[in-house]
Write a protein that binds this DNA or RNA. Structure first.
Length: 791
DNA sequence: CGCACCACAATTTTT
DNA sequence: TTGTGGTGCG
């Protein structure tokens, strides 16, 4: 066969690129470029709503189907004119010529931040590529590390079935240590200690070095912290446990220090993709760069403007300095937004423009201008919530779904009034975040049982359950036993087993031995039966469920319900993963969050913090509490860096909205039991006036407006209106109460109905209205009257 | 040992 | 305002 000429080689490469391109017709130019640039380091700056996930999916599809064909000059073996012709023709026949080292799915590592994102990625990949997609590693940093560590944790001295401590576990451990070291929780706040330990781990400073440096500095406080750190690591190690940071830092350590392990993974992964790169910390950066170190094919996707987790150690530097870190890297900006209308994007752009130190990006859209952003000023937090509720009722009446609406706030504490308003108005809602299912005390208790059964040396969890339900082993006895354990170098359960041998335990010794025997028995049973069966046995034999059922209060019934719910979750795991091991379930649970269970399909208004909203979108979004000291939060005021993070948060919140955005503030509000009066958020001022439709706005509260009295905003008692704003007419909250039993009414959202029941309640009435379309609804009359007329 | 009461503090939190 | 954690009593 005649070798191809240079000219033909050029044509071949060109034709091949065109061939591959045909598979991705539905992408825009920038997206396409990002999909085709498979080789070497690549930074994709993906603005909000720019089709980032689509790009990731197609990029992977490209790798699997064509390998590096779209991004290489290399010709396949035996390239000849016939192949070139087939390519140029563009038919099925060209496929063989177009492929260049197609990638095996298991050579692709795609890392996201949430299980939810990972799950979505997997789903979409499976839908597009079929079963083959199952071999792709699409997971979170943490779950990737768990998989790596399960294989080689022994090299670090950990058992391969190490347990994972969540934040609450870590906190509880720190508290124990503080107590043992006679340190005061006031001056050594566990939260602060953990943050410091986390920072040290991120900087790869081990406890020994931390302590050494602290001693050298002579700073007594740092020495104490170092001692806590050291003890923390010691106990974690003894318990065979790792916290979230450890998962990453030990993986990095393992890879850095062990050439064999490093080589194994580097040879395995040819393509590494990292999503939400702006949220990575230093350690995660290291991990990704090591894992991609074999091939050098690292693709990171992120948006510096959406970095909102600095407080968790994320460093925006990672994304800002990617270009200098990887000298030959390519940068692609995705700026076309497919989500929001023009005015919403204008608002987002002009807010974020006020930040310094960004890569610079401007979102644009083909969509029309859309509706202006509604800016509403409520009298107080009560009315704020009612405004949101009424607006949603109106939309619902016009045919929109509840689920098309999201209410975003800065802090969870703001959700209360909204909840009441939704309840009063009969609006179905759902709160994402807050206390999570797996953070509830009763759930943690039961999981602690399972943990101890799985790994008996887990002293921390054993401590949690040793006298729960009460079995006559008091705090003092536990303390004594724990002391003995330290002294003898045993784990707590070993002391319990041989409790007779320690005279100081005299009184509780029998019960201790009984309890240890029970745990040992369950430990043995765990080898024979499935986790769900074990759970049943455990709840029965420990008397835990009985304890809750006997109490019979509302709370305890709910708790018992939650405990039973764990079974659902175990069964779900067994079904999903096909795995029947207790360890597997526990590892999964440790990395599970509530966000994962957020169900898009239920028709409910969604309430959550702006942080939780990242990555989601809704036709209509309400951002409430648009006031200085709330958003931006008080802690950010006067702190330029923090302020920029708040502004990014604002950018994230605004860009969640597809069609309609409401910004709501209140002239005064009660927060943490105090009434305050704040000016309108500076972020509102950063939005062009032309995008805003002001409702109920009153002068004197603007951020930009000069204050007549110095310090007014901080000192003025809530009740006093600003001097130059005439006192607003006092709005009587009492609505027309001329509704009575049997009335035919027309409600803004629920349509026509009849009042079938009226129950006096707290100076108001709870009414049951039988609506023609949707049946009976319970509403508070006073509130309902605002949205309802008599027929 | 367990419960009741009081003081206190209180962003955000993908794992 | 809410939740939590510590103390003191039965």
């Amino acid at each position: 066969m005649q070798a191809m000429t240079t000219e033909m080689e050029r044509r071949f490469v060109e034709a091949r690129r065109t061939y591959v391109r045909r598979d991705f017709k539905n992408l825009n130019d920038r997206q396409l470029e990002a999909v085709l640039a498979t080789e070497g380091p690549l930074l994709i700056l993906a603005g909000a709503g720019s089709g980032k996930t689509t790009v990731l999916i197609h990029r992977i599809a490209n790798l699997l189907k064509y390998g590096r064909a779209s991004d290489s000059e290399e010709l396949p073996e035996g390239a000849d004119e016939a192949m070139l012709a087939a390519l140029e023709q563009g038919g099925e026949a060209g496929l063989a010529a177009a492929r260049l080292y197609p990638v095996e799915p298991w050579r692709i590592l795609a890392i996201t931040f949430t299980n939810k994102a990972a799950g979505e990625l997997k789903d979409r990949l499976t839908r597009m590529l079929g079963e083959e997609a199952n071999d792709i590693w699409a997971c979170t940093f943490h779950s990737a590390c768990v998989r790596i560590l399960r294989r080689d944790a022994e090299r670090l001295g950990f058992p391969s079935n190490f347990t994972i401590y969540d934040t609450a576990d870590s906190q509880s451990l720190v508290k124990h240590i503080l107590k043992d070291q006679n340190l005061d929780e006031k001056s050594f706040a566990p939260r602060m200690l953990l943050a410091e330990i986390s920072r040290a781990k991120d900087a790869q400073i081990g406890a020994a070095r931390y302590l050494k440096e602290a001693r050298a500095s002579g700073d007594i406080r740092r020495i104490r912290i170092g001692e806590v750190y050291e003890e923390y690591m010691r106990r974690m190690f003894a318990a065979g446990a790792m916290d979230f940071d450890d998962l990453i830092s030990f993986t990095v350590k393992l890879l850095q220090e062990n050439e064999e392990v490093r080589g194994y993974w580097q040879r395995r992964f040819r393509y590494v993709l990292i999503d939400e790169y702006q949220d990575t910390n230093h350690l995660q950066y290291l991990l990704s760069s090591i894992l991609a170190g074999g091939s050098g094919n690292i693709c990171v996707v992120g948006d510096d403007d959406q970095s909102i987790y600095k407080f968790r150690g994320a460093t925006i530097e990672n994304i800002l300095s990617f270009e200098s870190e990887y000298k030959n890297c390519r940068v692609i900006r995705l700026e076309q937004n497919y989500r929001s209308t023009g005015q919403i994007l204008d608002a987002a752009n002009s807010v974020i423009r006020n930040n310094l130190g960004r890569k610079g990006k401007e979102l644009w859209t083909n969509k029309d201008r859309g509706n202006p952003i509604v800016l509403y000023m409520a009298d107080n937090e009560h009315e704020e919530a009612q405004y949101v509720a009424s607006s949603i009722l109106g939309d619902y009446g016009r045919g929109q779904n509840w689920r098309d609406h999201a209410v975003l706030y800065r802090m969870n504490a703001q959700s209360n009034q909204l909840e009441y308003a939704f309840k009063r108005n009969g609006i179905p809602y759902r709160i994402v975040g807050g206390t999570r299912f797996f953070d509830r005390a009763e759930v943690k208790d039961v999981l602690a049982y399972l943990c101890v059964i799985a790994s008996p040396s887990d002293d921390l969890r054993l401590n949690r359950i040793i006298n729960n339900p009460p079995r006559g082993i008091g705090a003092r006895s536990v303390e004594l036993a724990q002391e003995i354990a330290y002294r003898e170098g045993l784990s707590l359960i070993e002391v319990l087993r041989g409790a007779d041998r320690y005279p100081e335990l005299s009184r509780a010794a029998i019960r201790m031995r009984q309890f240890a025997a029970l745990l040992d028995e369950l430990h043995e049973r765990a080898k024979e039966i499935t986790p769900d069966q074990l759970l049943d046995e455990l709840l029965e034999k420990t008397g835990y469920l009985r304890m809750l059922e006997e109490k019979n209060t509302v709370e305890d019934t709910a708790r018992a319900e939650n405990v039973r719910e764990i079974k659902t979750s175990i069964l779900g795991y067994q079904k999903e993963s096909g795995d029947r091991t207790l360890e597997g379930f526990l590892a999964d649970v440790a990395l599970y969050t509530d966000l994962d269970s957020y169900d898009k399909d239920a028709d409910c208004v969604v309430m959550m913090t702006m942080h939780s909203a990242k990555g989601l979108e809704f036709p209509t979004v309400f951002i409430v509490g648009m006031e200085e000291t709330i958003f931006p939060g008080i802690r950010a005021i006067g702190e330029p860096e923090e302020m920029e993070e708040e502004r990014r948060l604002c950018y994230v919140a605004i860009t969640r909205a597809m069609r309609q955005l409401h910004l709501v503030c209140a002239k005064q509000r009660m927060i943490f039991g105090r009434t305050t009066s704040n000016r309108v958020s500076r972020f509102v001022d950063e939005i062009p006036e032309s995008c805003l439709q002001k409702k109920n706005m009153q002068r004197g509260y603007g951020y930009h407006e000069r204050r007549e009295e110095p310090g007014f905003a901080h000192k003025a008692p809530a009740v006093r209106p600003p001097v130059h704003a005439p006192a607003p007419p006092v709005k009587k909250a009492t609505p027309a109460t001329d509704f009575s039993l049997g009335d035919r009414v027309k409600h803004k959202a629920f349509g026509v109905g009849k009042i079938v029941k009226m129950t006096p309640m707290g100076g108001d009435f709870l009414i049951d209205v039988e609506f023609d379309r949707i049946g009976v609804k319970k509403l508070m009359l006073r509130v309902a009257a605002m949205n309802m007329e008599k027929l």
